[in-house]
Simulated assay, not measured.
Amino acid sequence: MWLDRLPALVLIVLTLFVAILLDVYPLALEHRIFRPQFVLLVVIYWVYVLPQSCSMAALIILGVLLDVTVGSPLGQHPLVLVVTSYLCLRSYRRVRHFTHWQESLWILLLVACAQLIAYWVQSLSGRQMEGFGFLLPSVASACCWPVIAILFDRLRRLYRISRQV
């Protein structure tokens, strides 16, 4: 029974690993603010495609791994991932019928909410907030969403992972 889900599990883990690598890849200081939230985009995609397989415990473990990897306050990424995946689970039936540009707008809102939560947690740890520049990754993520969704749809079809209803 679990062997049937093995290709999906391997693909999910590999895509998350690549997303973590893209999130920690060093960029120049002036370009870091435009980095899309790759891990969040991958989590959103898999929650939309396989909503019944979404495990909050796995998201918490992934979030703690991200906190340790990136060096953010402990608990920031688990909170962001759980809240975002909850919003995705509440809306995945409607969003599946959106066009790519409508999905991108929804992704913009989801990632902006995630960014607000992340910066709220960082402000609790003493970091100063400066303007609304912290929302630029949500715009970059919304611009990357159609490419990521099309690429992952092709990967999913290649490995014969069906969409769950």
Results as ranks from 00 to 15, higher is better:
L65T: 14
L65C: 09
D67Y: 03
D67F: 03
D67R: 02
D67H: 02
V68R: 02
V68S: 05
V68I: 13
T69Y: 01
V70S: 01
V70D: 02
G71N: 01
P73K: 02
P73I: 03
P73Y: 11
L74A: 03
L74E: 03
L74R: 02
L74V: 12
G75P: 03
G75E: 02
G75H: 04
G75Y: 08
G75L: 04
G75F: 03
Q76S: 07
Q76G: 00
Q76T: 12
H77A: 12
P78I: 05
P78T: 07
P78F: 02
L79Q: 05
L79M: 12
L79D: 03
L79Y: 01
V80L: 05
V80W: 00
V80I: 08
L81Q: 06
L81F: 12
L81D: 07
V82E: 06
V82N: 05
V83M: 13
V83W: 01
T84C: 09
T84I: 15
T84Q: 04
T84W: 00
Y86K: 11
L87I: 09
L87N: 05
C88V: 11
C88Q: 11
R90V: 13
R90Y: 12
S91I: 01
S91R: 11
Y92M: 03
Y92I: 02
Y92A: 10
R93S: 13
R93N: 10
R93M: 10
R93I: 02
R93H: 12
R93E: 14
R94H: 10
V95C: 06
V95E: 08
V95S: 09
R96L: 08
H97F: 13
H97K: 12
H97C: 06
H97E: 14
H97L: 13
F98A: 07
F98N: 12
F98M: 12
F98W: 13
T99A: 14
T99G: 15
T99N: 14
T99H: 13
T99K: 14
H100T: 09
H100A: 15
H100Q: 15
W101F: 13
W101N: 07
W101Y: 15
W101M: 10
Q102V: 04
Q102S: 14
Q102E: 15
Q102T: 05
E103T: 06
E103V: 01
S104W: 04
S104A: 14
S104M: 09
L105I: 14
L105Y: 06
W106T: 14
W106N: 08
W106H: 12
I107A: 10
I107T: 13
I107R: 08
L108T: 10
L108I: 10
L108P: 04
L109F: 15
L110E: 11
L110G: 09
V111N: 05
V111D: 09
V111K: 05
V111I: 15
C113F: 13
C113D: 10
A114G: 15
A114F: 03
A114E: 06
A114I: 06
A114D: 08
Q115V: 04
Q115L: 09
Q115K: 11
L116W: 10
L116F: 11
L116P: 00
L116K: 05
L116S: 12
I117T: 14
I117L: 15
I117A: 12
